[in-house]
Simulated assay, not measured.
Amino acid sequence: MNRLPVIPTLLVALAVATMIGLGIWQLQRKAQKDELLSRYESAVGLPAVAWPTVPDPATLPLFRRSSLICARVVKIETVSGSNAAGKAGFAHVASCQTGKAEGADAKVAFGWSERPQSPKWDGGRVKGIIAPYGAQRIKLVSTDAVDGLDILAEPSPSQIPNNHLLYAIQWFIFATAATIIYILALRKRTKAL
């Protein structure tokens, strides 16, 4: 009588259970992301808010209109971006001081160009839309033109991907494939004996 190999069977069962668990977790993350994106969509038409000097990661006012005064431009970075017409190019993002504190405490995306130029910008009052931005968490995307630069594309919640359903399907496919491969390996082993 052929017996199942205990250790390989346990390892495969553990791996398959882990993959199924990861798929379920991704489905839960999808629901959370759907709720977050819905909240962002509803924020688009709300009144302007004050620029958060210390943004709380749990309650970021993303996609709300705001304004700030860039009292001093500390540095300017050039990153990929799109203009209001949707053309790809370069966004220019300034690290600004907004108060008396040392160092930069706000990021301002102030314009777009087709080429990676080094624009000059002295700061000043900026009106725009709060958008996500890496480790800084937020940036203000200017809705006004700066001399020599085009207006950037307005940030939108539709630009934030929600790939969790695809990730869940991927984990379920991996679990199914691992199960099928193990069953085929067991059949081959049984025929060989």
Rank of each mutant, 00 (worst) to 15 (best):
L68V: 01
L165Y: 03
A15G: 08
G45A: 10
Q26W: 01
S113H: 13
L4K: 09
A131F: 01
L60F: 05
N83E: 06
C70L: 00
W51C: 03
P47H: 08
G128M: 08
A50C: 05
S38R: 13
W112T: 02
G99Q: 03
E114Y: 10
I169C: 01
K139F: 04
M19H: 02
R65Y: 01
V126W: 01
P47L: 02
Q159S: 14
L60R: 01
P161N: 03
G148F: 07
R187N: 11
V108H: 00
S42Q: 15
R72E: 13
I130R: 05
A48W: 00
I169E: 00
T176K: 05
T143I: 06
A177V: 13
A91N: 10
G123F: 04
V74R: 11
C70P: 01
S142N: 02
T190C: 08
F172T: 01
Y167N: 10
A131C: 08
R187C: 10
F110P: 00
L27K: 01
K120Y: 12
V54H: 14
S113Q: 10
N162L: 05
R115D: 14
S156G: 05
S38W: 03
C96E: 02
P155K: 02
T78E: 06
L14R: 05
A135V: 15
Y133G: 04
R29T: 09
S113A: 13
D147L: 06
F90W: 14
A94C: 08
R65E: 13
I173E: 04
R189C: 05
A106Y: 04
I129H: 00
A168Y: 06
T78L: 00
D122Y: 07
R189P: 04
P116A: 07
